[in-house]
Design a protein around this nucleic acid. Structure first.
Length: 431
DNA sequence: TCTCCGATTAGAC
DNA sequence: CTAACGGTCTAATCGGAGA
């Protein structure tokens, strides 16, 4: 068994993981302070599953990812408020939180919509600093956060988990401040399930090897671990031992693929409805592509019937096409995408979902062109104007196809959505 | 035999 | 009234095809 403290030549880093509490619910509450103690949940797209829960809802036993239809009746009877997700609001709140946090440290990695890593290495009075960060975010945005500190990204995440779970920590936990013996005792009290990168499947397999706690994983024989589970697991173990294997990624690398897809509010049978939906997905995907100043060389379109209805005929075609040259032009890409839908559509199927995938992505302006085919007259100005309008007045203001998405047959179900408080003046309640 | 590809798997949020 | 179960993204790995 490995009971040695890891000795590393590098001075101990201090990484902070700052995570917003019940993020989507907290965003909604900023604009509805009257809901501060109402049990509430936010639902995924199409009002499908629970994706964010208030503490009250957690206490009632409502699980993360539970299908809403399964618990709806009981939950409503218990007074649970359910809201459709309002991504425009959450993205805007996230930007505010992240820019405040970014100013607190020389280096930041925005890891997801509600959490980021900060490099606090070498800074004095870490505990006081952490509380200051936490209070500043709360004061300036209304969003509560917890802060976990550790010598590696994985341990910072674990420390954040401790901060969230133990009320005594008051939202801040510093793993680096523990003695080696205290660290071991703590790790032996936490299930491996809580470790970043260890999901349901792996924790089950680990349990088969007698590895149940984080301490068990730290102490496991490294070569056997590597042989059975691969590199990723070895890195996780090293990180838990305090040896840094993962780096903070300050600038997000270009996406290798961009997908825009959605389930429909109801089944779609007709080709024109499907085409409209696909046109919409193309414009979403291309906007994302342009936002990272990139272009794609491959378009793919897929259609799906409802896989939860085995009694109905199933059909899930997917067709790809290489673009004549890399592009991020919604109009051009839509032409090819429409072609693909037409090829795949067949009468009689109840389509439930469709999507567009862009891949073989490269930075703008790096296209290999040959001498004979002229470069396409890129609709650059048009696309710029389009992105601007959609940002300013809301997604779907300017679309590639006729009907506004709000009226479309394929539009997703969002029965209980809150207003766009932060991006639409008219949505601000008069006081 | 080596490499490249697509499909599959696992995980995160 | 009934039926109803999310959307993106990455990396590793494996088996088969092709060089």
């Amino acid at each position: 068994m490995n009971t040695q403290a890891p000795r590393s030549a590098a001075p101990v880093q201090t990484i902070a993981l700052v995570d917003c509490n019940n993020f989507y619910v907290s965003c909604e509450r900023v604009f509805r302070p009257d809901l501060a103690s109402t049990p509430m949940v936010v639902l995924s797209n199409n009002d499908g599953c629970v994706v964010s829960r208030s503490n009250e809802a957690k206490a009632m036993g409502i699980g993360m990812g539970q299908p809403w239809f399964e618990i709806q009746q009981k939950a409503l009877a218990q007074g649970v408020l359910a809201l459709s997700s309002n991504y425009a609001l959450y993205a805007d709140m996230s930007n505010r939180v992240m820019s405040i946090l970014g100013a607190c440290a020389p280096r930041q990695e925005v890891y997801s919509i509600d959490e980021c890593f900060l490099d606090l290495t070498g800074m004095p009075l870490l505990k006081a600093l952490s509380y200051k960060i936490k209070n500043q975010v709360l004061q300036w945005t209304g969003i509560p956060v917890c802060v976990g500190l550790g010598p590696t990204l994985t341990l910072a995440k674990l420390a954040n988990h401790v901060a969230k779970k133990h009320p005594r920590s008051k939202g801040v936990f510093n793993y680096n401040a523990l003695s080696f013996a205290q660290q071991q005792r703590l790790l032996s009290q936490i299930s491996v399930t809580e470790v970043w990168g260890i999901g349901r499947r792996l924790s089950q397999q680990l349990a088969g090897q007698g590895v149940h706690t984080v301490q068990d994983l730290c102490a496991a024989h490294t070569p056997s671990l590597r042989a059975q589970f691969g590199v990723v697991m070895e890195k996780t173990q090293r990180e838990l031992q305090g040896l840094s294997c993962l780096d903070l990624q300050e600038t997000a690398p270009l996406k290798k693929q961009i997908i825009a897809s959605r389930s429909f509010g109801k089944s779609i049978f007709e080709l024109p409805d499907l085409q409209e939906a696909v046109a919409h997905f193309v414009s979403l995907a291309c906007a994302k592509l342009r936002a990272q100043n990139a272009q794609a060389a491959l378009v793919q379109v897929f259609l799906q019937t409802n896989r939860f209805r085995p009694d109905q005929p199933q059909y899930a075609p997917c067709l790809a096409m290489a673009l004549p040259h890399p592009s991020n032009d919604s109009v051009a890409i839509n032409r090819w995408a429409q072609h693909l839908v037409k090829r795949m559509w067949q009468a009689g199927y109840a389509f439930q979902k469709a999507g567009v995938m862009l891949s073989e992505i490269s930075p703008n302006g790096h296209q290999q062109s040959d001498l004979w085919t002229p470069l396409p007259s890129a609709n650059e100005e048009l696309m710029k104007a389009l992105d601007h309008l959609n940002q300013r007045f809301g997604r779907g203001t300017v679309a590639l196809s006729q009907p506004a998405p709000a009226a479309a047959a394929w539009r997703m179900k969002q029965a209980r959505k809150s207003p766009a408080y932060t991006t639409d003046w008219d949505a601000i309640p008069c006081v």
